[in-house]
Write a protein that binds this DNA or RNA. Structure first.
Lengths: 364, 364
DNA sequence: CTGAAAGCGCTTACAG
DNA sequence: CTGAAAGCGCTTACAG
């Protein structure tokens, strides 16, 4: 006895109208040539009966599940809500569902997560890699959201341009000694952001990069970054590659009695949830996740449905053993989406009259 | 021409071994009585051929998709990563995939999001409602993660106990005037947390509730909460119902030149990503999302697979028109999961010697 | 212990 | 413009 679904199916509609299931199917899908009048009647009964097409039946017949996978190796990433929301929206507009896969920040589990999605029969997947993860054999079309400078990237925010805008903003405010705060030099995204910042600053602006990873290796996780010292050294702006680290900088500075933004400015990236809530709010660069998701999903769906333009293994990608049968990196016309500057602090460095910080004030 | 999947199917395995598909199916599922030796050979060839069962075929036959839906009306909720990660993990252990649905913080779109999941044929769903959303007709088993005091709740953190623990902690440190910070009195979760706090404080401890919603109605979004004034009034601890608001309080206090935790203490809820990163780090209450997800998924799967204990419309739920055919609120044995206190600030109120704040110091 | 057969709900050439 | 039929891949009584 095969389990029957609760709702009505095509046969029921067909029977109640005295037509064939083929005609009902054609009428509902709008593909076959069915008389307008009959289409109308079929639509009406389908609606009246509360017909919901069976994805299983359709999937089995067409070989497509209508579902895409979303892989975020680092799901605890605070960007996840923005990404998931945008991807889910674009996918649902395109008629697809979104299945999530988590590799719990463990690179080794990423393959596992991808396999789980493949086993569920996803038609394609969107991967947001972290730190040069190799997107190997997915066995289905894959769109990658990383950074334009990464080989195989399908679409992403223009992190370099984002860096430039932050730099131009800080430069125009008169900051001449800027501390750049990143986590790890092995992150493509962070390198692009930092590279962009440095490229746009005039020659007379001094910068220094502080890698949190290195400090924590020495002083332990959650340690102070020594920013009060940096203020004493004359830095007047702190540009972090993420709002999370901007927040860390902001609170460390505040705790040390340094006034933000009167004495120094703090900027971040990504417009994460708290950046508009803290005092003072953070100047930041926002990704246009809606546009990014839209481009990624459109490219992915194009390959799935029309076998659109694809690349078997992106440039620079190497497949260890055999290239997986259906695995292909999807490409998009527009692969870099501009980031948008959101100014919430607009102070320059304190003028001579205001530069009267004593060591006492700085050392909490 | 029906589209064929790339991989091998049961027939291929059967053919290559000269047995029937039924036997292969039985061997692989372990259900039928197949000789151990044959099972072994079948397993081996399946593996060798890289067989991946077709979910579509299975779903069509069994009437179950093996997929659960996750509905978060407010996906931009910073808790989303924690929830999604835990749900996805528990679901995948139980052999299910997780489809996400977003109603973009729009209550009206929630029904739409739920429908999208139903159309995709989910076997059940997990809903994390916001502010008394009515979980009406889903047409499939539903597990609700809200708060124990809400009718229809399947499982959730024990927000009341969480509040008590925060209160006991602050009380033991000697705080006697505590400002409670919430957003909206219409939130069940927030009311439970605040109720728990108040219930555990000794009679001599004074509290006052500050509802952000009301302040913002008057002063606009992102306005100051006037916490420096509260410090002047003698409040020495600020207990927010979420780390997001704790962060808002922390930065507002710091910006006003008030030292946290030396002068006042700040606590939050949920151990959100930044609570351990800011300076000073936040004392907070952590939900055991792994346990909550596990209980929710187990209860859901039990109903799906065994038609376990259910309630048609939870107590207090009313269905406007007709009760939907398959809709049922799932119940679990253990419906409240204790929260865990994470102490990161442990200062009491400043002693008499330290209470020398002048107005000048407070007004930035 | 093993196999033949039916059927889940759909779509798609093909015939009329 | 409409319908009969095949078949996607699987599982499950049932017969042998």
């Amino acid at each position: 006895m095969a389990t029957t679904r609760p709702g009505p199916n095509l046969s029921r509609i067909a029977a109640s109208l005295g037509v064939s299931v083929a005609t009902v199917s054609n009428a509902l899908s709008g593909k076959g040539r069915v008389s307008a009048e009959l289409v109308e009647r079929i639509r009406a009964t389908a609606a009246a009966l509360g017909y919901v097409p069976s994805q299983a039946g359709r999937a089995l017949r067409t070989g497509r599940s209508g579902v895409l996978g979303l892989v975020l190796p680092d799901i605890s990433n605070p960007l996840f809500p923005q990404i998931a929301q945008a991807i889910e929206y674009s996918a649902s507009v395109a008629g697809y569902g979104v299945l999530i896969a988590d590799s719990r920040a463990d690179v080794g589990m990423q393959t596992e997560a991808i396999n789980r999605l493949v086993e569920r029969g996803v038609d394609g997947m969107v991967i947001v890699p972290r730190r040069g993860t190799r997107i190997s054999d997915a066995g289905c079309p894959v769109a990658v959201i990383d950074t334009p400078s990464t080989p195989g990237n399908t679409v992403s925010a223009d992190h370099w341009q984002g860096g430039r805008e932050i730099a131009l903003h800080l430069g125009s405010l008169g900051h001449e000694k800027i501390l750049l705060i990143g986590v790890s030099p092995s992150s493509n995204v962070q390198n692009d952001r930092i590279g962009g910042i440095k490229s746009a600053l005039g020659a007379k602006v001094k910068t220094e990069i502080l890698w949190i990873e290195k400090i924590e290796e020495r002083d332990g996780p959650g340690c102070l970054l020594g920013l009060a010292d940096k203020v004493r050294q004359g830095f007047t702006a702190f540009a972090a590659v993420s709002d999370l680290h901007a927040l860390r900088a902001l609170t460390e500075l505040q705790k040390a009695g340094i006034n933000v933004p009167d004495t120094v400015s703090v900027t971040g990236f990504d417009d994460l949830i708290w950046s508009s809530v803290v005092t003072p709010a953070l100047t930041t660069m926002r990704m246009d996740m809606a546009a990014i998701a839209d481009i990624a999903i459109t490219a992915l769906v194009d390959v799935i449905e029309n076998g659109g333009p694809i690349e078997r293994g992106g440039p620079g990608e190497t497949f260890a053993d055999e290239p997986p049968p259906g695995s292909r990196l999807v490409t998009a016309e527009k692969s870099r989406v501009p980031m948008q500057l959101i100014v919430r602090q607009s102070s320059g460095p304190p003028g001579p009259a205001k530069t009267n910080l004593s060591d006492g004030e700085l050392s909490t």
